[in-house]
Design a protein around this nucleic acid. Sequence first.
DNA 1: TGCCTTTCGATATATCTTTATCGGGTATGA
DNA 2: TCATACCCGATAAAGATATATCGAAAGGCA
Lengths: 237, 237
Amino acid sequence: MKPEKHLPGGAIPQASLRRLPQYHHYLVELEAKGVSRVSTSLIGRELNLVPVQVRKDLQYTGIVGRPKTGYEVKELIQTIESFLGWNNVNEAFLVGAGNLGTALLGHERFSRFGLRIVAAFDTDAAKIGSWIHDKAVLPLDKLPELAGRMGIHLGIITAPAEVAQSVADRMIEAGIQAIWNFAPVRLRVPERIFVHNEDLYSSLASLSWKLAARFHTGLRHESDDLAEPEPQRSVQE
Amino acid sequence: MKPEKHLPGGAIPQASLRRLPQYHHYLVELEAKGVSRVSTSLIGRELNLVPVQVRKDLQYTGIVGRPKTGYEVKELIQTIESFLGWNNVNEAFLVGAGNLGTALLGHERFSRFGLRIVAAFDTDAAKIGSWIHDKAVLPLDKLPELAGRMGIHLGIITAPAEVAQSVADRMIEAGIQAIWNFAPVRLRVPERIFVHNEDLYSSLASLSWKLAARFHTGLRHESDDLAEPEPQRSVQE
DNA sequence: TGCCTTTCGATATATCTTTATCGGGTATGA
DNA sequence: TCATACCCGATAAAGATATATCGAAAGGCA
Ligand SMILES: NC(=O)c1ccc[n+]([C@@H]2O[C@H](COP(=O)([O-])OP(=O)(O)OC[C@H]3O[C@@H](n4cnc5c(N)ncnc54)[C@H](O)[C@@H]3O)[C@@H](O)[C@H]2O)c1
Ligand SMILES: NC(=O)c1ccc[n+]([C@@H]2O[C@H](COP(=O)([O-])OP(=O)(O)OC[C@H]3O[C@@H](n4cnc5c(N)ncnc54)[C@H](O)[C@@H]3O)[C@@H](O)[C@H]2O)c1
């Protein structure tokens, strides 16, 4: 909508943003192995990407490399973390302490990436008052008050699809700025709110469509039987 | 790579594929309400998309609508389901019966969308032999044999990142064709294998970056204070 | 030192995706 | 029956993203 072209720190393709954590993951591995410098060709070889793409992505973070040498692994990790805001923690509320919510609550590693789920909310009387992975399950009604008081600006929705919109509405009223939505609905929110949908059914669609294509239409293992010394960029995402 | 241009049934943008389940979800709601016809403008209004994009997406499924009327809801649902292969069930093996694996195993609604997780595999002796949500947890070693015998061609990885690659390798040896990977690593697989990465850390990156941008750079609620009768296409995805 | 290779950064091109536009068909209601 | 508003389908334009190319810098090595 805005014709802004390249304002530094302001614009980055979603796709690049998605790859940065993957670089980060690999870089941390490298660092653990004692490697101190890395080139985009190396990263690309590891992650099945062409070097130029990696370089482009890294440029968004503002880091500069040196010809022949590449980048300092340590510095690169730092830069990515800082760029992604993983240095200062985001505290979040989770709504819907069911199957999926429980899994997220139990995932401690999130804290390494700037996310700390501080409490869960539910409407099920049987769950309210209990603790899941050391996080309290509170009545949904208390969310607005607590969010305000604690200055929470990130909400996670793992409640049933039917109630997701109303949950989102309440979150926004409570001053929440960004929502990580696991319910398979497209939320209607004011423009200033940032929503990230984690729609597993959409993923499922890719998978089942691919599998269906395999068997229905005549696409049977064309380039089968490995033996491909090529860059071998396989179908991903 | 291939110069194939538009072979029917063969090519569809990932993005469109991702939206189809969202249409489906809304259409099912509509049908339940007794609505029999629907236009792309209506769908677009509901899902915050411009009508022409919805139309484009639907065209990939091969359905044809009628001017003024739109599409038959029932027919459209059918077409999408059939296009996505949701009519015939894909049976899948899940590896890694931990937090996330348990959540997936417990999600019965997957079966409505062509996915049936038939068993879980793990290496943790404490888990092997137990049942999670009525699914048996088996030793990983048995996967190859069972996959072959049962003709399973879809694998779900919810094991730790460190072992994800080795799990994938075993799956592929066992004849599995597509992998739904929840571990935050980019798997190296032969070209014929289809991998769909569900990388939650990547999602997290979008969120934390957005939040960081909010507070760091001077982007403070520019178009704040609702009051926007416009199509109001908010930042999503 | 001088040559060769690697790799970065910048620019250009290609490809993919979204959005706009146009023409024509169809229900609705005067 | 006719005018009108709506909506589809096709094609074109615009916008994003991915890939290719080129010059220059830097290290390795004769
Ligand atoms: N579990 C999965 O693997 C999976 C997969 C795909 C999508 N999802 C989606 O994630 C969401 C949660 O799935 P789940 O499997 O955890 O469901 P679940 O039924 O296990 O959990 C839902 C939780 O939300 C709570 N809840 C219900 N109404 C609420 C409300 N108004 N406010 C707050 N909490 C409320 C319930 O008490 C329950 O604890 C659903 O939207 C589902 O479609 C889950
Ligand atoms: N839980 C989440 O919310 C979450 C979020 C983001 C990413 N993930 C990713 O999903 C994966 C699983 O996460 P989790 O929270 O369920 O972890 P978890 O530790 O709860 O579960 C992992 C399971 O895998 C099993 N396992 C270990 N090695 C194995 C092997 N070689 N073969 C088969 N099974 C093996 C373990 O016994 C355990 O049951 C991880 O890769 C994690 O990074 C999880």
